[in-house]
Amino acid sequence: MAFCTRKLPDMRQITVSRRGYWSQNLRIISALLLLCCSATFGVSYFARDMSFHFFGWPFSFWMGAQGAPAIYCLIVWFYAHAMRRLDAAQEREREAD
């Protein structure tokens, strides 16, 4: 296998800061996933109860049609932004070593 001939890092070389990177990543992912699911499934589940007026729309209808998709856009944008910063921080740390 061509893959096996490549030089890959040994597991033992993985430093504490790298573990930090991954757990930080998991924390961000969980928070954003929770937000995504509550905007989607939470609001939809209680759609009948959330039918109060919202600029003409019933609120649950507006959430399904515009609010939730807009929240997804923000989630994805925020993740890209946060991870770019995390990547940069890790890169700086590595250079400092």
């Binding site: 992912i29 954003l32 996933l33 995504c36 989607t40 939809s44 759609a47 649950s60 209808f61 399904g64 049609a65 939730a68 998709p69 997804y72 989630i75 994805v76 993740y79 890209a80």
Partner: peptide, 19 residues
């Protein structure tokens, strides 16, 4: 309203793609 399942389903999938 039932059709909004397509709007939410097809856009929220991108959260999963990104994350």
């Amino acid at each position: 309203y039932a059709g909004l399942a397509f709007i939410m389903g097809w856009t929220s999938g991108y959260c999963l793609v990104a994350l």
